[in-house]
């Protein structure tokens, strides 16, 4: 994790006070804090001028927002068509067993969040796992385990 985090006000300042910037603001806050806290959600609503209900609907509709803190490392197993055919499903199951966490959830020690994605656009190397910003191509259960041990 980064040592310093930006102040919420600095993020709000990036966008004019218009409803159309709701999603961009949520994304920036999500990127900075890895989740959207109730306080931040309220501040964003005030800034762009939308009711909390709309922000709530948006934050729960789109998959990239999280209303709970996420883990230090994000493991995203690709379950796009190609990765599915090449055994991506078995990789998620292996992660679920090894990390003792269900997909879409975070380990109790907040070390890992396990998630699935639908195609990261590296299908030629399927199955693909993204570990934070890095791609692991042609992944297998052993190669994935080795990579996770290094973290």
């Amino acid at each position: 994790m980064k040592a310093t985090t930006l102040e919420i006000d600095d993020i709000l300042e990036r966008y004019p006070k218009q409803p159309q910037h709701l999603i961009s603001l949520l994304q920036d806050v999500q990127a900075e804090y890895k989740y959207i806290s109730p306080e931040h959600l309220a501040l964003i609503c005030d800034h762009v001028g939308v009711p909390l209900t709309q922000a709530w609907a948006v934050a729960t509709f789109y998959k990239s927002f999280s209303l709970e803190p996420r883990g230090e490392h994000e493991i995203k197993v690709c379950l796009g068509t190609t990765c599915h055919l090449k055994g991506g499903g078995r990789l998620v199951e292996a992660c679920e067993r090894d990390l003792a966490v269900a997909r879409g959830h975070t380990t109790e020690d907040l070390r890992f969040t396990l998630d699935t994605v639908k195609c990261v656009g590296a299908c030629a190397l399927a199955p693909v796992v993204m570990i934070d910003e890095d791609y692991l191509g042609a992944a297998s259960i052993p190669s994935l385990q080795k990579r996770l041990e290094k973290l």
Binding site: T81, C83, K118
Partner: peptide, 11 residues
């Protein structure tokens, strides 16, 4: 948006 899984031409 290129949402179709298995496609990456737009990317």
């Amino acid at each position: 948006e290129e949402g179709d899984p298995g496609a990456f031409m737009d990317r």
